[in-house]
Design a protein around this nucleic acid. Structure first.
Lengths: 143, 143
DNA sequence: CATTGTCGTTAGTTTGGCTAATGAGTTAGA
DNA sequence: TCTAACTCATTAGCCAAACTAACGACAATG
């Protein structure tokens, strides 16, 4: 098999795997009915503390308007608060509500975040491969 | 850093990388204006010869109605033909037109399929990691 | 103090999945 | 044989989640 063909096969396989997993990730939701991207935002807020919508968007690698929607959903569910920044009236600071904190805690305990669950079922070697692969995928996506 | 936290970080990183790359893949198109998933279908037909819509859907890991849409687009662009199977009147066989064959050939020569291009810019080691990672991602997606 | 820029949001579009249902055609069983 | 059940492709309609463009409020700067 010539090099070009091998690369072409990798391209096809990788594309398939990535698209499939992303479809799965998009649809999958934990038992509290939150979408995985919403949970991800909660996790970011938990790790970094209150952030503005733009900062959140940067973390997720999406545009601010997309993040506004996610935050809106979380707000309606009572998971986040939006408080205007007293120093800069343009900015809004998004922070977790006690409800969200409790949910995150329970989530972590029960390990019911879908992807984490699946990852736990892999071998250590397989997880190591994915750990190596993640930044490469990121670079492919073009930062 | 405790094991659980490491795994949780992997989960977040991997999710991010996969979603980012998938968004990129979805949007990216070659210079002939075809979406990457359409090009992928052409590539499958090129490799396997004529296939039915269901077979194509299975290859891409999507449902038949979704494939019908893609095939419809390709048909309107003059890239595929749909011929009824003479043995089984329910089935349709999708095959490449000369236009498509020519495009595939040119594509291959110029290597302008977006992902293949990016992959070519990686080191051999990095590609090896991705080659190992792809089937694991597939298993995460749930077969 | 007026212009220019930034932030969050709104509005509207695009893409590409999905399920459910339909119609044509096949297969199997009474 | 003829009817019931199944299979395949398609249609219709829904939904999630990204995007761009534009807007209003506010800030910063000349």
């Amino acid at each position: 098999m010539p090099t070009a063909a091998i690369r072409s096969a990798l391209s096809a396989d990788l594309r398939n795997s990535v698209m499939r997993l992303s479809r799965r990730l998009r649809v999958e939701r934990a038992d509290h009915g939150l979408m995985l991207n919403q949970i991800s935002v909660l996790a970011i807020l938990d790790r970094h503390g209150p952030l503005t919508p733009s900062e959140l968007a940067a973390h997720e690698g999406i545009r601010p308007p997309s993040m506004t929607k996610t935050v809106q959903c979380l707000f309606e569910g009572g998971y986040v608060e939006r408080t205007p920044d007293p120093l800069d009236g343009r900015q809004v600071v998004v922070s977790l509500t006690p409800t969200a904190r409790q949910l995150i805690k329970a989530d972590r305990a029960r390990r019911d975040a879908w992807l984490a669950q699946r990852l736990a079922e892999l071998t250590a070697d397989e997880r190591a491969i994915l750990r190596d692969a993640a930044p490469i995928l990121d670079r492919l996506a073009g930062r």
